[in-house]
């Protein structure tokens, strides 16, 4: 009993240590650009998160790309998941396997082949090419998550709705969709974090545009500005808040 508690504590510490470092460094006033030591406590970074040129623009851009890619990938992925679980058609088996492919392909390969494709098609690289690239790999994850949810759904529930005078559209709206929603939301969250976080595929296809991960990587050569840690801490706080809220809402039921 005590042993398992110690192990759990160690694992948790292992998981949270990098986060703690980020949080700590967000309050750091480094003595020079390349210093990663904690020199002096300050609130200056929090007071001026957009200080470093291009930082906030890149965060905003990543958020825009993330939201757009999430919406597109969630809609497409959900439709695909419904099609794959609800209908029998020619080529369903191969399609089921093909959907997994972008998840299994190394990102470097994905990114470089997309770049080749865009270049060959003379598509100007930038915001939209990154969105297209992100939608492509996010769809797979959405499909997998939503499909799992649909597969676990009792088909009798939709029959019961139909039996209780609900037309197919009503059945979908009042029974199927609410029951699939946790899967769809989970898929969307996954898509957003994958997109926001992506560096490799974006780096290939962004042209001269800079996303937040690309900004961080670029500035790492010259010394990361402490404001990056502010952004990181803020994002972590938002994630924690989301988890807390969902936990409490579930418990309230």
């Amino acid at each position: 009993m005590r042993g398992s508690r110690v192990v759990a504590g160690l694992v948790l510490a292992y998981l949270l240590l990098p986060v703690a470092v980020v949080v700590g460094l967000s309050f750091n006033a480094p003595s020079n650009r390349l210093s990663y030591d904690f020199d002096r406590f300050t609130l200056a970074n929090w007071a001026d998160p957009c200080g470093p040129a291009g930082l906030c623009a890149s965060v905003l851009r990543s958020a825009q790309i993330g939201l757009l890619a999430t919406v597109l990938a969630t809609v497409l992925g959900t439709l695909l998941a419904f099609g794959l679980t609800r209908h029998r058609f020619r080529g369903r088996g191969p399609l089921n396997a093909l959907v997994f492919l972008p998840m299994a392909t190394p990102e470097v390969v994905l990114g470089s082949s997309l770049l080749a494709l865009f270049t060959a098609g003379a598509v100007p690289l930038g915001f939209w090419t990154v969105v297209i690239a992100h939608v492509m790999f996010c769809v797979s994850f959405v499909v997998v998550v939503v499909k799992a949810r649909l597969a676990g759904m009792d088909p009798r529930l939709e029959e019961a709705a139909a039996d209780l005078y609900a037309s197919p559209w009503h059945t979908f709206r009042t029974v199927t969709l609410p029951l699939a929603m946790p899967g769809i939301v989970a898929g969307a969250l996954l898509a957003f974090s994958l997109s926001f976080d992506d560096f490799i595929v974006s780096n290939f296809n962004a042209g001269t545009m800079t996303t937040f991960p690309m900004f961080v990587w670029g500035s790492a050569q010259r010394g990361i500005p402490p404001q990056v840690n502010v952004v990181g801490t803020a994002m972590f706080a938002v994630a924690v808040l989301a988890v807390v809220i969902t936990t409490f809402r579930r418990r309230a039921r």
Partner: peptide, 8 residues
């Protein structure tokens, strides 16, 4: 229904 099929 035999299995109730209540909406969860």
């Amino acid at each position: 229904f035999q299995s109730y099929a209540l909406f969860p």
